[in-house]
Design a binder for these strands. Structure first.
Lengths: 205, 205
DNA sequence: CCTACCGATCGGTAGG
DNA sequence: CCTACCGATCGGTAGG
């Protein structure tokens, strides 16, 4: 009860929430470049003009900050990539919109290091714990969303490919992740175009 | 001249080389799990029963250790994945052998964290410097090797797909990298089988 | 939210 | 190759 008590009326709770939001947004941006473990309390504190212990107090432990950062990055991803596509019809229109908004999300630098998940998943894939679990959950939801559209396309007879939808969703995600990596390495958005071309060839997008 | 002087005859040079080799082999194994930046001089020193400053003296700087580790990992990759395939005929047999040995290299745990390159590339893709350059070089050579086989298959009329060979090599590599990630996250080698199935469908492998 | 501090660890170096 | 040390930084805490 104490932890979830009603907000005090003097605004301290509101100010605390605002700080937390600023911290995790900044931490997600830094983590897309440096990785999540490498983002120190000092890094985010300095960027925001607060003290290190202010950040520490707001989250308790480094791991709690990491979990809150993953949650924030996931919300940003949903807002920037998933939400715009949900207005399109299920099946091909929605899959196309998801791919378009994903490529755009990388290209326009929503996160400075490209896709947050692509940057952080390999960092945690062999480190069991709540951070990996949270990343894995986000990945599962993303792939399920793609698989649903592929399955719909197959039902509608819009896709000749009869491979299982989850397998094809694996392929879509693989091409996007590889494009993000290649773009970061080369500094050339042409990698995104390459992925687009492959997706067009494989899925009539 | 001084740095490249002939080896002394008392064996100090030989011992130094052996130490360096042990250090980078161990560092590559650790980096496949924790990432390259997170491997400290102390970590490798403790594992090998030497002192931290012994490791430091053998490499000069942390970055030199990182570069030597990338070079060692690349040699291991060539030995475990590339070399066995070079005995096969160019084109489909060789591409199939490359894919087989790659999947086997991950499955049998040549590196405890799966594919070294897949673990470390995302860590450095937005960090300009010699380490990123070395990783990028290794990636280019790997993709070129794949592209050569694909081009040969197209020349031989063994592949209907007319997309440019470098683009198809991008796809092959993307599927393998995604399989490595999925396997690490899920702890299930089934992800490797999924990639195999997709590669069979796309490239008649 | 702050200052001030804790022990642990980092990469690197001096000196042998 | 070692011991012993350096300044810097890490996550975290005491106390306000």
């Amino acid at each position: 009860m104490a932890d979830d008590a009603e907000a005090t009326t003097d605004g301290r709770r509101a100010r605390g929430d605002r700080t937390r939001r600023q911290v995790v947004t900044r931490a997600a941006a830094l983590a897309s470049i440096s990785g999540l473990s490498a983002v120190s309390l000092n890094d985010v504190a300095r960027d925001l003009g607060v003290s290190k212990s202010g950040v520490a107090a707001a989250f308790g432990t480094k791991e709690e900050l990491e979990l809150a950062t993953v949650a924030a990055a996931r919300e940003i991803f949903i807002e920037e990539v998933v939400a715009p596509a949900l207005s399109r019809k299920r099946g091909r229109p929605r899959l196309r919109a998801l791919v378009d908004s994903w490529l755009s999300y990388v290209e326009r630098g929503v996160f400075p290091g490209g896709c947050f998940m692509a940057a952080v998943l390999p960092e945690y894939d062999t480190k069991p714990g709540p951070v990996r679990d949270a990343l894995h959950d986000a990945r599962r939801a993303w792939r399920q969303l793609i698989a649903d559209q592929v399955a719909q396309m197959q039902e509608d007879g819009q896709l000749e490919d009869r491979l299982p939808a989850p397998l094809l969703a694996f392929e879509v995600d693989a091409l996007l992740a590889a494009a993000n990596l290649e773009r970061n390495l080369s500094g050339d958005d042409g990698a995104l175009t390459d992925a687009r071309r492959l997706l067009r060839a494989r899925f009539d997008l």
